[in-house]
């Protein structure tokens, strides 16, 4: 070993070439331990659950909006037969009143035969309906995007066609939307609970990591790192862990969704599939569903970073 002429560190001499890559960019705080992996797993599971809850809530929200717009675009007038009145005349009168109401796109009358066919599932085929007072339906399709006021039509019908009654499905719609809203609120509450659980897990993991890295933190202090710097280092590690965990969880949630979508598609041929689809719409979540899952993953990662930073700051302040 030949001694350099001067140890003067102020003037780095350039005679010898520097090693190509000195930079390893190793993290200053080692969190990549078994504890770190366990935390990533916990975060993955919690993200998975949160994403499924949020995705489910989104599914219900989307389906119920779809039903509501379909259902509320249709109202029906029911005309009951009455011995003293001609039902055909009543229907004609009701139809002409309906045509004059605002926001109406199309008025369609069910003929006697069609009305009877509607009853078949309940009464069986081959019955002679001629003796039965089968009510007749007039289906009114509304223009898209309109929310017309039917009190005028209702009033007119009551005066001119007392055997007719208007059903705008309002009661059914309120019940439907109440139920859907309840499901959505429950889903959101579950998401929040899962996020709180994730925060707690991160808090404990951070405190554990800090206690395990006491020596490292001390040395960082001695070489002139301030609390902010140390907190940032921990935060960066935990953000990566959180991002990895939440990406795994979100990925699993997306895969489950896709598999469920494929299963429902194969069920669709069966009668059970029809009912499922009637209830949930087709299972394939739209872009909003995927966006929700990705958003949840990002939220979890950011919560992980923020909570770990907060915990580190508090830990450093307690330590004096």
């Amino acid at each position: 070993m030949s001694e350099p002429s001067s140890p003067n560190p102020r003037q780095p001499p350039a005679e010898r070439p520097l090693p190509a890559s000195l930079r390893r960019n190793a993290p200053l705080v080692p969190v990549e331990s078994a504890g770190g992996r366990a935390l990533a797993a916990v975060i993955a599971i919690l993200t998975f659950l949160a994403a499924l809850c949020a995705g489910g809530a989104e599914l219900v929200a989307a389906s119920s909006a779809q039903w509501q717009s379909a259902v509320s675009r249709e109202i029906t007038i029911q005309v009951r037969p009455q011995a003293q009145r001609s039902i055909e005349a009543d229907i004609e009168q009701a139809v002409s009143l309906a045509r004059r109401a605002p926001g109406v796109e199309e008025v369609q009358t069910f003929s006697k035969a069609e009305s009877e066919r509607l009853l078949e599932p309940w009464l069986g085929t081959g019955l002679d309906f001629s003796d039965l007072p089968v009510p007749r339906l007039i289906v009114i399709k509304l223009q898209e995007g309109t929310q017309p006021d039917f009190s005028g039509l209702r009033q007119a019908l009551r005066e001119k066609v007392p055997t007719a009654s208007l059903d705008d499905h309002a009661l059914w719609l309120t019940r439907l939307s109440t139920m859907a809203n309840t499901v959505i609120v429950v889903g959101l509450v579950l998401v929040i609970l899962v996020l709180v659980a994730a925060s707690l897990a991160v808090t404990f993991a951070t405190r554990g990591a800090m206690a395990g890295n006491r020596e490292v933190v001390d040395v960082l202090h001695f070489v002139g790192a301030n609390d902010d710097y140390i907190a940032r280092e921990f935060q960066r590690r935990f953000f990566r862990l959180g991002l990895r965990g939440s990406a795994m969880g979100a990925g699993a949630a997306l895969i489950v969704t896709i598999i469920l979508g494929m299963l429902t598609r194969s069920w669709r041929a069966s009668p059970a599939g029809d009912q499922l689809e009637a209830l949930f719409g087709s299972f394939s979540i739209g872009w909003r569903g995927y966006a929700t899952v990705i958003l949840i993953a990002l939220i979890v990662a950011f919560i992980t970073a923020a909570i770990s930073r907060l915990t580190v700051r508090r830990f450093l302040n307690e330590a004096g």
Binding site: P4, P7, P9, P12, A14, L18, P19, L22
Partner: peptide
């Protein structure tokens, strides 16, 4: 600081 650190390490 790379060059400086390397030089000190050699010293």
């Amino acid at each position: 600081y790379r060059a400086e650190v390397v030089e000190l390490l050699r010293w």
